[in-house]
Nucleic acid binder design. Structure first.
Lengths: 204, 204, 204, 204
DNA sequence: CATGAATGAGTTTTCATTCAT
DNA sequence: TATGAATGAAAACTCATTCAT
């Protein structure tokens, strides 16, 4: 956790530091990211950095927390809280939409997340050793949908969750590099859903 | 490219160096990987390293080339060369099988690939700016299959290629961490194929 | 010297600062001692510290003065003022007793003194270049005792003073680490005196 | 332990480094001593320092080892090995002589030892937690002499050992600062011995 | 070819002290 | 007077690369 001094800072300065940190972490993996670059970019003294944060990881962890919250905030809360009442594929659409909106509106955050996912060591230091949260999230949804008879009974929920996550990651990564896909966002979501729905739904 | 001196080395020594490099790059992202560690592990002098390679990246690039070739070598050559003659989903099964076999038999190579994919900067320095090869490969296969009427006409080949790649990546990553999935390799491939086939095939 | 602001402080706050300083200097040599730790421990703002003291050394010097006074205060004043009237070895006993009582009752002050004695540079900056006061004190006492015929005439007073000081230092250092000696304080003093007396007194 | 690279260095360079280290550690407590100063003084690059030693403590520990050996080497080996055959006070004289010769001939080493003795933490990290070696050494000698009837039975060996050490330390410290004592070395030893002998020997 | 010592730029982190409010 | 944010000069340590032998 950042120190009190950080939270006592004027909003504007705090933002400058956060933006500078995002810039650095979006372009360098954690170990390569330089405190000096962040301080310079934010226009603060190197020493000040350590008035606000215990060390590089402290800032990084804080940032990951913010990112996580932000990502969550893109999900339609009503749908998530009452997910029992909605059909699975509507929920899935909702999740796809929020994931892609998040990526589009926060393109610099995507590579940070990607790098973290790839640095298993760091990931566990920050989020502990419980199972990858997103996979768990999808797995549960699939399990419930299977019980409701919406999903093909031969499908293994964990495997399917892993595949859905993979699709989503790969796609958002692809999306934020300009011009890699000609389709507009809605078309992409429709195709993903079409693919997933036909792939997973119960055959009659 | 490594220098001639490297290729003049006795096979055994060359292998030792390559193995040492794989060890280091499998456990550290490129920038973090230490030339010293590789030299020590290979039992050569640090100075010798620079007799064989221009610098760290030279070795890394060479390694990526070897890896690429090895990966290719897992594909059934007959199938690939005559791919016009086989149905798409049989080809896809073949690719899935080879991908998973490669990952299972070369688990240290998987994280190296993952890390590289994540370091866009480095990736482009090494493979240039042409499109991601694997996506291109799948896209073409899908394109042809679409022409043959095997694939649902509403499917966008590039998008579908991206999704298939994503699934495969996510899964191999998952696979090499022991115990993350209870299914055996064949069951995994069957499920992936079942999912992909239902998701992509032409509906009647 | 501390600034006026320090002496205008309410007694209680002044004490808190002094205690905090003792804590810090007892556990860290001067250079290692941190102003921040003292301020934190005393519950004052870092800036306030510099309202009270010119710098770290200012506080340290002040503390050494207090310590010196306190040490003196353990000496039986009557005996010291009229030391001409008492036999040397009674005075010596008195000094030993006061030295050990001081160490026992102010264990945190002992290491501070030890560290200072060991940092010649700092010692001279604080106490100037006049001869070590304690040695001088003993030397004079011995000189007088020699004139009175209590001390063996072959004894060199300055050398003997140095040896007595050495014994006393070494012992107090030893004493404050629990369990290093099984004897009780009085037995220790008796032995020291027995040793010193036989070593120094005039033989007949 | 220094790395092999250090021992492979030409004698002359190794000496330069050792001398530079002694200079730095003689004038600064361990924490205050600067690697940069040592490297500069020795005329080597900062990076080279870390080719030779794991870190600052590595060099320091090595130095303490050298110092210890050197100190031992000043003792008359015959006397020490056959100490059962010699009277206690002759042995003591021998130890005093060697201690003072060592200090006189290696004046820069004395403050290093003093500082180490005063940094309990560091001392234990380097020499482990066994009892202070010099005190033990004297204690045993006294014990044996007591059994031989050379020492006054009321004397506590451990306490006496501590006092002897204290005298010796205090004196060597005093000695190396020029002009602090007018006596020549032999006179000093004679006085110390005269003092100790009268203080400790069995009264008839 | 092989060796391994030498280099120094670059990185994180610490902390006494200053200064604006 | 009190505060606590800001500063920057150090310090330890790392490592790719060069170079003399």
């Amino acid at each position: 956790m950042p120190k009190d001094t950080f939270f006592n800072l004027p909003e504007e300065k705090r933002q400058r530091i956060i933006e500078a940190a995002i810039d650095e972490f979006a372009t360098h993996p954690f170990q390569q990211a330089r405190v000096t670059a962040i301080a310079d970019q934010a226009g603060i003294a190197k020493g000040s950095f350590y008035q606000y944060f215990a060390d590089k990881k402290d800032l990084y962890t804080y940032l990951m927390g913010l990112m996580f919250q932000k990502k969550i905030s893109y999900l339609n809360q009503d749908l998530m809280e009452n997910r029992g009442k909605y059909p699975f594929f509507q929920l899935l659409r909702e999740v796809f939409i929020s994931g892609i909106r998040f990526a589009k509106e926060n393109p610099r955050l995507v590579p940070i997340g990607m790098m973290l996912v790839n640095d298993k060591q760091l990931y566990h230091e920050i989020f502990g050793h419980y199972e990858d949260a997103s996979i768990e999230f999808f797995r549960k949804m699939l399990e419930e949908a299977k019980d409701q008879g919406e999903i093909d009974p031969v499908i293994d929920p964990k495997l399917a969750a892993t595949m859905l996550i993979g699709m989503l990651y790969s796609l958002t990564d692809f999306l934020i590099e300009d011009g890699k896909l000609d389709l507009d966002d809605m078309a992409i979501i429709d195709q993903m859903l079409y693919f997933a729905e036909n792939g997973l739904k119960k055959k009659d």
